[in-house]
Simulated scan of single mutants.
Amino acid sequence: MPENAQKEQPRRRQARGERRVAQLLEAAASVFCTTGYTAASTNAIAREAGVSPGTLYQFFPNKEAIAIELGERLVHEMREAYGEALAPVDPATPLEQAVGAAVDRFIAFNCDHPVFFALMHGPDVPGRLTEEHDALHATLIGRVEALLSSFLPDAPSADITRTAQMALGIYMAGLELVLAREGAERDAYVQEIKNALIRYLDPLVGDRLGRPGLTRTPPR
């Protein structure tokens, strides 16, 4: 057999293997979203992928290994997404614009990958994914702090951290409502998340920059 042909065969086998792994991960994402992680089974994933359980076991020893591989890939994509969405901005940027751009980017990611929420925020997250989630959350808070520092350069770090935690909490509370809806109703809930964040952040930004906020609560 020619040397070039000998080299080509392993490449083809590798490519087929990568396609099969992608097929299994896509099927697992569908099953995890439908049944949750605990109720999911390798048989259900194999059935969704249109392969035999034996074929699945050639690539993954159990459903936890599948969930970890899927979760790690999604975490990598999420890190890229929030790296762009939460980059520091010019302080002259309107708050509504900065909040809207960040929310839109994160909502788009979660709507494109609903299994991310199912895996990372479910009650039965596999052990290694819990560690991945905690690391992701810590990094995400850091990114939100950096974004807030663009608007509040003189604020104490403790205030920035507390505000970042609250802002992320508001977003996460709304995200579950968004993912449970579709179409115009989903869009309306996305706008509600933006409104809530802007109403929370605007008085803080206005106070620090010495300008009136957009959403002051009138005195009683």
Rank of each mutant, 00 (worst) to 15 (best):
I68G: 07
T55F: 05
N62Y: 03
F32S: 08
V75S: 09
A27I: 03
E80M: 05
A102R: 00
P10M: 10
G17H: 12
T42C: 11
E84V: 06
H113Y: 12
L86I: 00
E80I: 02
L56W: 03
Q9T: 12
R12D: 12
A15C: 02
R11T: 13
S52F: 07
A65M: 01
P91I: 06
P10R: 07
F106G: 08
Y82P: 04
E69M: 02
I66Y: 00
L24K: 07
A40P: 11
N43M: 13
R12Q: 14
Q6N: 15
I107N: 06
C33V: 12
A98F: 06
P10Q: 11
Q14S: 15
G71D: 06
C111E: 11
H113T: 08
G83K: 00
E48S: 09
D90R: 04
V115D: 07
P114T: 09
V99R: 02
E8F: 05
A49W: 01
E48V: 02
Q9A: 15
R13P: 05
D104P: 02
H113M: 05
V51S: 04
A67D: 01
N62C: 07
R19N: 15
A44N: 04
E72C: 10
A28P: 02
R13N: 12
F60S: 09
P94Y: 11
P10N: 07
A27N: 04
F32V: 13
G83S: 01
E96H: 02
A65N: 03
H76T: 14
V51A: 03
A85H: 03
G50H: 09
V115S: 15
Y37K: 03
Y82R: 08
R12W: 13
A108N: 11
A101T: 13
Q97S: 13
V115A: 14
H76V: 13
R16L: 15
E26V: 04
L86G: 00
Y57C: 07
A85L: 04
E84I: 01
G36P: 04
P114C: 01
G54K: 03
Q6F: 09
I107C: 08
G100Y: 01
P91D: 07
Q9Y: 10
G71T: 04
C111D: 09
I107A: 07
Y57F: 15
R12P: 03
